[in-house]
Each structure stands twice: as C-alpha cells, then as structure tokens.
Design a protein around this nucleic acid. Structure first.
Lengths: 348, 348
DNA sequence: TTGTAAGCGTTATCAC
DNA sequence: GTGATAACGCTTACAA
C-alpha cells in the first residue's frame, strides 16, 4: 500500500492516477470531465485516452462531497404494488438519466407519516430534488424542503393556485368530464368507488368532479353513493357488490382508478350482470390492466409518460436556478365499452 | 461566508458543529454515532443531546468517502411495468432498511446489454452490493464484480451448481411439478407461451420443466407447442390465439407467467372457449393480477417476500465478510380452477 | 489554458 | 475513553 507504483490490479483508479498517466494536473482532468470546453482539444484527447486506458470512472461520493450536489433525485410514490405510477416514473427516470442524474425511489404505502419519513431519508441521503405525488401534506414538510433549498415537483395533480411547483393534471376536471358523459347517457343513480379521500387529494378531487357534474346536471350531489377503500382489485370487487346491494341501485359505478374498476368488472361478471347493459363502469388512469377486462374499460387517459418527462425537466431547470412554470397536462377520455345508456327503469 | 459565527439558519449543521456544541472532538461525536459502546454513557448523552438540538444528520457523501462504503444496495430488475418483481423487491427493500441500507433500483427492460450498463452505473454510483435477476450473463460481468469486490446475489433462480450466491427457487422443477399435474389430467397436446428463452434463463428453465415432465410421461417433448413472446397481457392474448389455431389443438396451455396467462384467459373468453372445459390454462408467479381472471388461475406460487428478505440477509452477510449459503426456496402449486381434465377427443 | 492548493464532512489511526 | 490529525477523491477559486 505504501509504495506509489501502479495500482495493483484490484484497486480502482482515481483522478490522480489519470492525471499522472496523462501528465497533467488533477484540475485539468476534472475539467476534461466536467467542462470539456474549458480545455484544449489536445489535452482533452490525451486525458480522455488516459481515462479509457485506465478504465477510470469518478467516485460519486467524493464528487458529491466536493461539489455539494449528488446528482441524485428522489421520488416518493404511494405504491409499487401495481402499475399506477410505473409508466410515469419510468419516463421520469429516463429523462433524468439523459441529464446525468440517478433516481432513488421510495414508497410511502399511501401513508403521510411514512412519506414524511421518506422525504427526510432521501434528503439526508443527499437527494438534490424530489418528485412527490399530490399536494396534500403538512406545511412543515414544505418548510423543511425550502430551508434545505431542495426543489420538489408535485405530480399527478395540478396545483395552479399554490406556489408549489407542479406538473400534472386536473383530477377534478378530468373526472368531471367523464361524469358528464355518464350523465349524458341518462344515468341518475351513480355509485363511486374511491380510495380514502381523507389522505389522498387525487381521490378527493375525483369524487368532487363527479359531484360537480351532478350539480350542473341538476342532480343532488349528496346522493352520490360513495364506497371508500384501498386500491386493489379485490377491494374493487367487494365495494362493487356493496353498491349493487344499495337501493336504489346505481346504474353506473365510477371508479377512482382502473384497479378498482377491474375489481368491479370482476364482481359484475360474478354477479352475472351485463356490462354495460345492466350497469356501466368507468375507471381512471388507463393502465394496461384495464385491457384485461372482458369488456374494454371506459376510462380517463392520463399522459403518464409526458408528465414524468416534464417533471424531470422542471426539476433540472430548478436545480439550474431557473424557476420553471407549473404545467397542467390535458387528460382525455377513452371511450370504450363499459359505459352505455342507463337501462330503462322497468328493465330493472 | 468568511466569518465562522453560528451557522445562519439555512445551513445544515455538520459533525464539527455538534462537536463544538457538545464540547468534545469530532472523533467522539463520530464514535457516539457509529459505535456508542465505545464512549461513556455521560458523553453519549451530551453528544446526542447536541445532535437533537441542532437537528444534525450525517452527510452521506462524506461518510461514504471516508468509510469506503455507501450503504447503498443496487437492484436491477427486468421490468417495473408489471408487478412480477414488485413484492419481492419491496421485501428486499424493507429488510435492507432494517440494516441501515438504501435500495437503488434500475430496470433493464429484459435486455442484457442494458443490464450490463446498469450494473456499471450502479457500481460507479457506489452500490456496495447488487441484487440481480437470473444467472445468465456475460462472464465478464461476474469478473468485473469480483474485481471490484462487489457481492451480488442472484434471485428468482436457484443456481446450486455454480459458485455464485443465489437466493431463489428452481424454475425448472417448479414448472415440472405443474406440468405433471397437467399431464395427470389427461392432457396430451400441450401448448406453452413463454418469454423469449434465449435471453431469459427463468423462461428457458420453465419450458425445460414442461419437457421434463412430458418425457417422463412418455410423451415426445419436441411436440410441445411453444410460442415465444414478451411478457404482456396483449401478447399472451395473441399467442393463445395462435396456439388455438394449431392442429392438433392443445388442450392445455401452460404460460410462463401470470401476465401471459391472463392474456390467454382474455383471449379464451373472446373465443368463447370454456375454461377449463375446452382448454386448461396455467400461469406462474401467483401475482394479484391472477385474481382478475373470470376463472381463478391455477399457477405456481413463488415465495416473493421471503426471497427478497433472504436475499437482503445474504447480501448483508457478504458485506460483513461472511460467506452466506445459497438458498433454494420451495415453490408450491396453487390449484385453482383453470386446470381441468382434458376434454374427450370426440368432444372437440 | 493549465496548475496549485484549499477545502467538502466524515472516518479511522494513532497517541495520550 | 478521548482528542489530534491524516486520509478519502474530487471540485474550484485563485494564480500563473
């Protein structure tokens, strides 16, 4: 260890090794790596050759320590158990990678306390910036982030009123549009299966969207039959059966996401209910799972990939000292086959 | 910046700040944090109080640089698009967290070249150890890891013959058991939908397992009708239709995983085929998705959570200089409803 | 354009 | 048991 001969096989080369090999200073090597335009073509080549020859790659811990940035971005999503967030996060990650950043993902199990813990963990771990889902959280969290000067982008929501950076879509408006379609089909008794609205702003907004549409259509929003549960196929199934037992029975069941809707469809099939003849069902998210349904699911399409991409760009901008604009992406309705006309009262 | 007065609000406290506040040296603070048993109860309390008071938390980059370990474990999984790996990785992460480690996940899209790239990326990023899926990869990768002294655990496979650490299950044996059950039900013409076997050792082993069972039952293994495709519901659907067009038509279709099986079930439903009356279908993995099927899926249950947990323990042991044993976990068969007796020839 | 050298915040090896 | 102090590998003023 004490002689400074060639690194002996197993040792990983350092910047200094490259400097020696190239006959320049460590500063120059660093420049070649980080701002190639600040060195001569000639030295650049010499240095890069040495880098290749030695198989050098920088030590990120050292770089982070010296530069004060880790080039790591954290993302905290409510769940990895199903594909709801997969596509968006995938796109987020791809965009980050293009910018030389690494993604660190954690999951909060839809629990605010765990989310706060994860936020702490990730920032302590050195995340330069954060992607979070939704806007509802303790103000202290935002203060903490602000104090540490850690930019955060809120996604899967659109939050124009606040001054928090967000890249997402308007859950309320999106669900309202779908509800309007449901109402136009003559449905008067509407059921709704949703995640718990107290801890989930997206879920809450979506339910509000349904109520908005009902109100505008002259219906009493308080008559919306709501089943709150956790996102899972099984729970969608159970909740749907409950709604079918209600009197008057809903002729349309709007689900807070596709996972629940698929569960509802399964239950409907078990109950020998025709979809959409006997009852209409809608989803939200447009994930691949929706295609499993025996009847193609009418749902809200969310631009997952673009959202992930834009969120990454916004964060990169923020890290570069710019103040990126909030982005609200449009959603659209996938009008497939689970939504149909309300059955005539006597048909029931 | 140049005066060394109290850190002014926004600055994050360092070890040195704590040392000053506690009236001890930085070394002592470090000891209190890392090996509390090497300091007096009294100083421990003083220091910890200071830590709390200042809201200190260590800088991981500095720690990693000084200690030569990052306490970060990397995992590279083929896909995040569906839930195949979700449960196992979740358990892996939970176990790591208990041991003070962070998980860094990357996905390879089932491509070996991308996997190699990700391995490089993660190690360069400082991963202390790696979780990989399957055992098939360029020997150079293993050399690279060995040279850098980075332990890796291979999962979702069992690889007792090799000297690579593995924690998983025997795909071949598991699928063979299921195939035996299929054969016992009188099926003679078997179809199989699998991922591409050239790049996926688990898929290859599973197909081999079917052939093993056929051979032992006196059937010609080369008569197995194989459709290779990528894991997705849609592809399972398409492949199933192809198999149904073959003559003689298979009376049982064994799928390489539940995602494909769900696609097959969807196609069967569209083709108005009774399951299992007209044709039997089996899966592999036992993920929640399987429950969507109108008919509960017969499949191979994989102990995802235990696998993830044991894999983490094995890695922690390896990092502590121990040589953990390979672990082969048992799988079991979920005998549900998609597997039935082969229809009598005249019934077809 | 390039080199020198002072950190970055820890850990770890020594003495004491 | 505790305290100096030298690494760890890199970035970045500041000089040349």
């Amino acid at each position: 260890m004490e002689d400074n001969a060639k690194p002996s096989g197993t040792d990983v080369p350092t910047l200094a090794d490259v400097a020696v090999a190239a006959g320049v200073s460590t500063a120059t090597v660093s420049r070649c790596l980080n701002s190639p335009d600040r060195v001569t073509q000639k030295t650049l080549k010499i240095v890069m050759d040495a880098v290749d020859r030695l198989g050098y790659s920088p030590n990120y811990s050292a770089r982070a320590l010296a530069a004060g940035r880790t080039n790591t971005i954290g993302a905290i999503i409510p769940t990895m158990e199903n594909a709801i967030f997969a596509r968006g996060i995938q796109a987020f990650q791809e965009e980050l990678q293009q910018n030389g950043c690494t993604l660190l993902v954690a999951s909060s199990s839809y629990r605010q306390d765990l989310e706060e813990e994860q936020i702490k963990t990730l920032t302590v771990r050195g995340a330069d910036a954060l992607l979070l889902i939704g806007y509802q959280r303790d103000p202290k969290v935002y203060e903490f982030l602000a104090k540490r000067k850690i930019p955060a982008v809120l996604t899967w929501v659109s939050d124009p009123d606040s001054d928090h950076l967000s890249v997402g879509f308007n859950n309320r408006q999106a669900m309202k549009s779908l509800a309007e379609l449901v109402l136009e089909n003559g449905h008067k008794v509407i059921g709704c299966i949703t995640a718990e609205t107290s801890a989930n702003d997206r879920a809450r907004d979506r339910v509000s969207g349904i109520r908005d549409a009902m109100k505008e259509a002259g219906l009493d929003p308080s008559e919306l039959l709501v089943e709150e549960t956790q996102y899972s196929i099984e729970n969608g199934d159970v909740a749907f059966r409950k709604l079918m037992a209600a009197r008057p029975r809903p002729t349309a069941v709007m689900c807070g996401n596709d996972v629940l809707a698929v569960g509802a469809l399964r239950a409907a099939s078990a109950l020998k209910l025709e979809i959409p003849g006997d009852v209409s069902i809608t989803g939200f998210d447009d994930i691949e799972l929706a295609s499993v349904a025996p009847v193609p699911l009418t749902t809200v399409h969310v631009p997952h990939r673009r959202m992930g991409q834009f969120a990454a760009q916004a964060l990169m901008a923020a890290l570069n000292g710019n103040a990126p604009d909030n982005i609200e992406l449009p959603t659209s309705i996938c009008f497939r086959e689970t939504l149909g006309k309300a059955p005539a009262p006597n048909k029931r």
